[in-house]
């Protein structure tokens, strides 16, 4: 599922698509920076959609970091976000620290809980981790509902804003910065030797173990990193929307992130980020248009998730990648080796 450059010949053939990918990345970043100045996005409503899209994009990227590489579904992702958010909100409210300090603190608590959950479940099979994170999420949700002295329960906790402005534009750039940083950091991790170990474990646990990798160490490390990132996004969520209710941690929020991650393409990191913007904005528009059917967008998420799982397991990233390969091959069709070795595209295998 994941393209890895195993032989020198393959890596030479990949250099073309890689350059293309770099160009695409630069173009996409430029577009996302310029986007708030293009007509429909100049309005505050649309800019709010953009902030939400960037937030869910970053969440889906961090989700994909575990789901796509070590094949562990963090079914409590939203709860780790919520934990980060609540940590920061409570500390800022009681001790008056700067919301910016909340980011490392939120990452710390979510990371520690991720570490503990990972230590407990990741020595077992993946499905234990998925179900256990779900339990942990429901327990956190229950705690947030019950500890009304601290969290005010379902009434919601008012949180001081991150920036001294009501304008959505600065928030968008903060979140875009977080998104790009997340993508860059996680991509660098995946490209490193540690990332190689992740991919090895995800593809074949026995073979990875046989080649001297201690799976538990890498699984827990991966999971902890992902949860810490979730904490960071939760802090942004809290200080952007200004109110935290236990519902932030709900399973439906996780499923939204999960659906975007898988529709975007597992094991690509950039796929979820790219698909999150059009999907999230389309869903928001649909919500506004069909306010009488508030559940419809979730039906669409569910249907898309099923279709992707059945027919296109590499998601949008796979579609884009195969288009890119075709684009890349066309100009230098005379060059034999590049064209020939580009044929075994991932996902084309039945």
């Amino acid at each position: 599922m994941v393209t890895t450059s195993t032989t020198p010949a393959a890596s030479a053939a990949q250099r073309g698509p890689q350059r293309l990918g770099l160009i695409a990345a630069v173009v996409l970043i430029a577009v996302s920076i310029a986007l708030p100045f293009v007509p429909p996005f100049t309005g505050q409503d649309w800019q709010r959609y953009l902030v939400g899209a960037a937030l869910i994009a970053a969440s889906a990227v961090a989700f994909d970091f575990t789901a796509g590489y070590i094949d562990i579904v963090n079914f409590g992702f939203a709860a780790f976000m919520g934990l980060g958010g609540y940590t920061s909100a409570i500390l800022v409210n009681t001790y008056g620290i700067s919301p910016w300090l909340g980011f490392p603190l939120g990452a710390l608590t979510a990371g520690i809980l991720g570490l503990l959950t990972g230590l407990l479940t990741l020595r077992l099979r993946g499905i234990y981790a998925a179900v256990m994170t779900w339990f942990v999420a429901l327990a956190l949700l229950g705690l947030a509902r019950n500890l009304t002295d601290v969290t005010r329960g379902p009434l919601g906790l008012a949180v001081s804003p991150l920036l001294a402005t009501n304008d959505n534009l600065p928030y968008y750039y903060v979140m875009l910065g977080i998104l790009i940083a997340t993508l860059v950091v996680l991509t660098l991790v995946i490209r490193s030797r540690v990332g190689l170990a992740f991919r090895a474990i995800g593809q074949n646990l026995q073979a990875a173990r046989a080649s001297g990798i201690n799976p538990t160490v890498f699984l827990v490390a991966n999971f902890t990193i992902s949860c810490a990132f979730a904490g960071v996004f939760g802090v942004f969520y809290a200080h952007y929307y200004g109110i935290l209710t236990p519902d932030v941690m709900g399973t439906s929020h996780t499923i939204e992130i999960l659906a975007i991650a898988y529709i975007g393409g597992r094991g690509s990191l950039w796929g979820p980020a790219v698909i999150a913007f059009p999907m999230y904005i389309a869903v928001q528009l649909l919500k506004v248009q069909l306010s009488s059917q508030p559940a419809l967008y979730l039906v669409i998420y569910g249907l898309l998730l099923i279709l992707v799982m059945l027919y296109r397991p590499d998601g949008a990233a796979g579609v884009i990648r195969s288009l890119g390969h075709r684009l890349d091959r066309r100009p230098k069709s005379g060059a034999g080796p590049a064209g020939a070795s580009a044929t075994p595209t991932p996902g084309a295998t039945a």
Partner: peptide, 24 residues
């Protein structure tokens, strides 16, 4: 199509189905 990563894939498949059931 594939039996690779069957447990996780079917888990997600049923998760998608569950959202559909509930919201329909």
């Amino acid at each position: 199509r594939s039996r690779e990563q069957w447990v996780m894939n079917t888990f997600l498949l049923t998760a998608g189905l569950s959202i559909m059931f509930e919201n329909v």
